[in-house]
Write a protein that binds this DNA or RNA. Structure first.
Lengths: 349, 349
DNA sequence: GTGAAAGCGCTAACAA
DNA sequence: TTGTTAGCGCTTTCAC
């Protein structure tokens, strides 16, 4: 037994055949209690568990799911969205002894596709979880061609409905957070709201902007200035400068941001422009990252149930892999407004 | 060819034997150019690459590296340390077609050990990368027992030298950042420096505190108040309240924190206590996360070369797996002070 | 209740 | 230059 122990070593130690060992560890009955005990003891003594590779080769199940993050290191660090989602995913994966194979590929063109191809062609994973769907997302077609089961977390794009199973908040509830935020600001007397959106090729980013606009319309407020940014802090600063610049129409007294990172950066940009938050300007973020509680003033933001989303994605993926299994997905709380300190009464005109 | 294509399908399509295909894709010569071309064409046509599982079973190499994060989702999200390290690791892994198998296990006792056991016993990975070594870290013994190659990123504990290869800044250069910070504060006239440390069971946390204390001693400054915290924002707030409470001896005019998250939280705690940063109090963080540029005032902090550390860890691990291979690790920049806005002249006494 | 043997997809010796 | 074949560690019929 020079290297790692194999099933044969266990069988020998227990004085039984390999198939007996296999049956015991897989609980496939037909083995006497006494034999089973001897086998278990031998396995424990040798610190043996079935080799995942051998099992995968045999059964075509790798017991791993894949995830590809097409982002630079900096962006990844600045936006813990991924991290939180992953910890939700792991929560569901770990108990059933599945692993998560992660690929961070940066943004070079082609890198993402290569990553998925490898995952599929080398049969390293049973399926993948996608986030941040893009408009006309090429990944759906790619994964279908690769025959790699996939689940999308988040808001699907209409035209892509049915391309991949989608895990998200119950239909119609996704809008709740932004509506609450608009209500909250209106109640505080704000009438001119600005919005800093994420890139227009991201589905959730377009979705949030539209919800904002329709919430405004529902309250009979004038269409607000919307600035499209790129989810980064620098983008938010530039967006703020444009929103607050003296121009046609009055300056907004409150600004919503499509994520917390931008909101925090925007808050400080405002401060550098001589405005105090929330006295002169109210600010609302999106995601409810820990960051929001750290800053001064603490950030009012829209909280998402990211951990639960991650868990639901795994459940859905398992359902795809094994249609027999009853997939009871965890309930996902709709986004809701978390009021902290960065919003306050509208300044007197 | 109902399911995914195999090497046999490719061989059949190219009209050659399976071993010919194997030789071609592995570049093992002894194949005519014409045949090679036919094989490649067939492989491309079928979108085939060798199954990672089969290769692993054959060669004992899984082409995957493991990492276990024993942290709650919140802590993980609040401290992007891991995320950045991972993106460095991936940078090195991707080109050689290795995967990263991640396990986020939370902090329940035993969960971490189980994760490593599974990684080893199921032979899912060729080796693991460790971070955040603890004093008397049980993982070294565990991994040795499991015969799982491991590399530690960061500062090793003396007694554990040699237990696992360590990747870190060149010896003696690790101290640079904190020394620079102390010098910087002294130059600004500060004489009473406080320090908020991380938990005392973390090696890097103890290391940083000691460097701070010896830097103070080297400058002939009185031993400063040190408060031990837990790396979280809440901990930092409590620490701040203790440091700034009126008590024996004068209040510090500057405080160093063992990470950026605590520094930002501490900065805002100070503000709530009526102090303005940097006018009344200077603050220095550690890590140089993107967060530091977002907040107001922007955080002066000690930057670490985390991406490079991740890359070096992979190189070192590969060296362990294959002693033949010349492992030329990337040069890692020592920590250095990044001066921004949260430090300023000491207030007049 | 238990064991022998045939593969899963691939690589590397060995033959041709 | 090319093809044949024996495993890698496991699960699963199918005999006993």
């Amino acid at each position: 037994m020079a290297g790692k122990p194999t099933i044969a070593d266990v069988a020998r130690l227990a004085g039984v055949s390999v198939s007996a060992v296999s049956k015991v560890v897989n609980g496939r009955g037909g083995i006497s209690a006494a034999t089973a005990e001897r086998v278990l003891a031998a396995a424990a003594k040798l610190d043996w568990s079935p080799s995942a590779t051998a099992v995968a080769l045999r059964g075509a199940r790798t017991r791993a799911v894949g995830m590809v993050a097409a982002r630079s290191a900096d962006l990844l660090a600045a936006d813990p969205h991924f991290t939180v989602l992953i910890s939700g995913i792991e929560r569901e994966l770990a108990p059933v002894d599945y692993g998560l194979l992660l690929h961070v590929v940066g943004e070079e063109p082609g890198a993402e596709e290569r990553a998925y191809r490898r995952l599929a062609q080398e049969r390293r994973v049973d399926g993948v979880i996608l986030t941040e769907s893009r408009i006309g997302d090429p990944r759906f077609a790619l994964l279908r061609r690769l025959r790699l089961p996939a689940v999308l977390v988040g808001v699907p794009w209409h035209e892509e409905g049915g391309e991949a199973p989608v895990v998200s908040v119950r239909a119609g509830e996704q809008e709740a957070g932004i509506r609450q935020a608009v209500d909250h600001l209106c109640a505080l007397g704000h009438r001119r709201l600005g919005y800093v959106s994420g890139p227009e090729d991201r589905v959730h980013s377009v979705f949030r902007r539209r919800v904002f606009e329709s919430a405004l319309a529902a309250r009979g407020l004038a269409p607000a200035p919307v600035v499209v940014s790129d989810f980064t802090a620098q983008g938010a600063v530039a967006a703020m400068e444009r929103l607050l610049a003296p121009g046609p129409g009055a300056r907004p007294t409150a600004v919503l941001f499509a994520n917390d990172t931008m909101a925090v950066a925007g808050m400080n940009a405002a401060r550098r422009l001589g405005l105090e938050v929330p006295r002169d300007l109210s600010v609302v973020g999106y995601d409810d990252l820990p960051l929001g509680e750290l800053v001064y003033p603490r950030l009012t933001t829209i909280g998402q149930d990211l951990v639960r989303l991650g868990r639901a994605a795994v459940t859905a993926l398992f359902g795809l892999l094994d249609p027999e299994r009853p997939a009871r997905a965890p309930e996902i709380r709709p986004p809701r407004l978390v009021v902290r300190e960065s919003t306050g009464p509208a300044p007197a005109p």
